[in-house]
Amino acid sequence: MRRPPEGATRRFWRAGPAKYTAVLRTQLAHGLAFPADLALRSLAIVIFMWVFIHLWRATYAGAGQSRVQGLSLSDTLWYLVLAETIMLSKPRVSTEIARAVRDGSVAYQLARPFNWLGYQAAVALGDALARGGVTFVLGGLVVWLAVGPPPPLWGWPLAGLAVIVAWLIDFCMSALIGLLSFVVEDVTAFEWIYSKLILVLGGVLLPLDFLPDGWRQLVQALPFAHMIWAPARLFVSPDAGLFLRLFGGQLAWLMVLSLGLGAAYARAQKRLAVNGG
């Protein structure tokens, strides 16, 4: 019959992963419920890539070099496809969490036997995968037509892994911002600052390799670079050494941020129990 209550850790390893992958799968299916609508919303990448193709063609022509900082025109554009895909498909975790805190639905989800953060992370990842898939295909098509085939296939799994970790890093930072809504009423300003930091310091608009020398090392060490630049850079020049360095950096940031998030959540939960959010 029913198991007696047992230690949370043992319980997690027995049933936990299945639980959260089930959430992820369900959210993925949910996201794919309207394929036409999804494609229409993903059209933004087509526009952006079209502009980028024009911009970088003119730029490479003006520079008179076929490679800039080791990147060819094709590399740069394929880099931008993946960078934009990560950026455009990352779910609005902070908005969702802030809303859940404000309207109290966070409280209702607590009445179920799962770790709330784990549940949210699974939902976010499922959402990102659905949108990211469509976005990448559309953007990739445009760039393929313009500059030729994508980087070699064997690097794709490495980049794919890095993209997943990138979305998890984003989840941690966005969730931290979302939890701020326990303290301040309106978190939109923080969301803005955060998304601009990614835009400039993450390498969404140009590969961070093009930054001036002094800045480059500093910016590449930040979590923002590990969300965008690291996976996209791995994608265009897959190589075991680079993978170990960038993926290791990603995991380190993920660890630090998830510890921070766990602590923030513990505090938020205490507040919630007293005031109901």
Partner: peptide, 13 residues
């Protein structure tokens, strides 16, 4: 972003 861009590529067309 443009400031960084034009540092690397001073003139584009």
């Amino acid at each position: 972003f443009w400031l960084l861009f034009f540092q690397r590529f001073p003139k584009v067309n």
